[in-house]
Design a protein around this nucleic acid. Structure first.
Length: 514
RNA sequence: GCCCCCUUCGUCUAGUGGCCCAGGACAUUGGAUUCUCAGUCCAGUAACAGGGGUUCGAUUCCCCUAGGGGGUACCA
């Protein structure tokens, strides 16, 4: 049986797009499922200056998500190099062969001449077919055109009759008429190569068995198959994935449209939540580096890579009518191209967050500590003299911590007892405007100071006795107590909070407002 | 303009001619629980784009229309 080999071919853009992740993930899952290899290739035919700098966030993001590659940048492989910019000789050889076999030709048309033909076709509502007036297949033609000062590009000499049926693993048979296809350029006048040519040559060289890529390439496939057939290459299997679309739309998700997405309240909520964490750790936040369309957003805020993977796998793929929670291992076991859907699927920030909650909840306390600690350190809260209560906080917080960065919600536990701040409106409402609450607090303070064991159950009993004796409701005192002890109107259970802080800190804190 | 693809609840989807007056999840609504928050538990609202066929029977097959998306570059 043929070895399954898939590839993901990012351009060095400097960021890892969530849609790109989905494509990479499906390629990777398919390879892993079939015991094959996953190859990473860098599409840098554009010759950018800092390719390394521009691919490093991409490589980092993939690794963070657990998507590893068997051949590619940083690790090499038997078919190296894996950078298109370093493979020009292969492309040149392919172009020469195409020329020799007359499947490609030198074309000396000027841009405006081609454009005029194209415009004419549009006017007549017909498919544009190049007249090949400036095609040069003989030395004399070449001389003649060059004497006119023309420059040449290399174009494919596409068939003009018959049809091509592509058997796509997701879409089934897709039929194209060769006559509708253009004589596409494969080598520019400056000698550089066009993506389609490079792509096909690389896939052949790397022995790619399955081309799994986004839908936008489906229309490009005929010209690629023409090159493959002309050169006698092996035809890979194709699978064209639907787009990851904008929230509430079917348009491809784009990094550049953050402004627009922010008008979606769920999307805005995701960003706000992330920003509040970023602010606490002193991360500078701009639309360019803090964008949920880009994967590092999630890493910065403390999302779990397995949650992102779980969610993104379900954008355009489903196993059955009920299974939704998948570990990476489950995904490898169960993934199949048959389960991939055809329609574009929009990105739903709320559902992503729901997966994050679920996955985070499954973590052990030790794992949570390991993930949360760096956020406390980044916020300069850690290390501190109260560091030992972290474990208890995390256990008590339970599902209140949804992403690792949420630990910062409980930073008041680590604050200095004499100088932590009060939420102004809460303080006014529960204390300043409630003079009676001070008296109650005073009395409760006395009870607390006599309490030996600061255990939350005992403390609750103490409170119960207190309100019974005073004939008041718990609500009459507990809010004021919470503000005085934490400075906030909401938080963990009141008695757990007291237990975690411990007697002396609690007394110190209450004393401040008496 | 031309070519290609797509179309089930708000969203992700299950569904391959009768099991579906359409199932699950997220969201949402109501109720319960509660010291706040976060939850949890119960209950509910909500969809086969439209029109023609084929068939005893269409969400499922065919055709048309509409809508959406992509390609049509010396972009990838």
């Amino acid at each position: 049986m043929m070895t399954v080999r898939t590839r993901f071919a990012p351009s060095p853009t400097g960021y890892l797009h969530i849609g790109g992740v989905r494509t990479a993930l499906f390629c990777w899952l398919f390879a892993r499922k079939h015991g094959g290899q996953f190859i990473l290739r860098i599409d840098d035919t554009d010759q950018q200056r800092n390719v390394d700098e521009a691919i490093s966030p991409i490589l980092h993001g993939l690794r963070w998500l657990g998507i590893d590659w068997d051949e590619g940048p940083e690790i090499g492989g038997i078919y190296a190099p894996y950078y298109q910019s370093q493979r020009s000789d292969k492309y040149q050889a392919a172009v020469n062969k195409l020329l020799e076999l007359k499947f490609a030709y030198r074309d000396y048309a000027r841009t405006e001449e081609i454009q005029a033909e194209r415009d004419a076709a549009i006017n007549e509502k017909k498919t544009f077919t190049y007249s090949r007036k400036w095609m040069a297949e003989s030395e004399s033609d070449i001389k003649r055109f060059e004497s006119e000062g023309r420059q040449c590009v290399i174009r494919l000499k596409m068939p003009r009759t018959g049809e091509l049926i592509i058997n796509d693993l997701i879409r089934g048979n897709v039929t194209f008429n060769w006559a509708d296809e253009q004589d596409h350029v494969i080598q520019r006048a400056d000698g550089s190569f066009i993506y389609h040519l490079a792509n096909v040559v690389d896939d052949e060289d790397f022995k790619i068995s399955h081309v799994i890529r986004a839908e936008e390439h489906l229309s490009n496939t005929p010209r690629q198959i023409f090159i493959i057939q002309s050169l006698g290459y092996n035809l890979p299997s194709y699978a064209h994935l639907p787009f990851v679309a904008e929230p509430g739309s079917k348009t491809k998700l784009s990094k550049r449209k953050l402004d627009k997405y922010l008008k979606n309240k769920d999307f805005a909520k995701l960003v706000e939540h992330g920003k509040s964490i970023a602010n606490r750790i002193g991360l500078s936040v701009t639309d360019d580096n803090f964008n949920p369309v880009i994967v590092d957003f999630y890493e910065k805020v403390g999302y779990l890579p397995e949650a992102i993977v779980n969610y993104i796998a379900l954008v355009g793929w489903a196993l059955d009518d009920k299974t939704e929670f998948f570990s990476m291992k489950d995904l490898i076991e169960n993934f199949s191209l048959e389960g991939v859907t055809k329609g574009a699927a929009s990105f739903d920030p709320q559902k992503l967050f729901a997966f994050e909650e679920k996955h985070f909840l499954k973590l052990s306390t030790d794992e949570k500590i390991k993930l949360c600690k760096p956020f406390l350190e980044a916020a300069k809260i850690f290390p501190c003299e109260f560091s030992d209560i972290l474990e208890k906080i995390i256990e008590t917080a339970g599902d209140r911590i949804k992403v690792a960065g949420d630990i910062l919600l409980f930073s008041d536990f680590f604050a200095d007892d004499n100088s932590f701040e009060y939420e102004e409106s809460a303080y006014n409402k529960r204390i300043a405007d409630q003079p009676e609450s001070i008296n109650l607090l005073k009395e409760f303070y006395d009870l607390l100071s006599q309490q030996e064991q600061f255990d939350h159950q005992l403390l609750e009993i103490l409170m119960q006795k207190f309100i019974d004796a005073k004939s008041i409701k718990i609500g009459d005192i507990i809010h004021a107590l919470r503000i005085s002890v934490t400075g906030k109107s909401s938080g963990l259970g009141m008695f757990e909070t007291l237990e975690i802080l411990g007697k002396s800190r609690v007394l110190k804190r209450i004393k401040r407002i008496l």
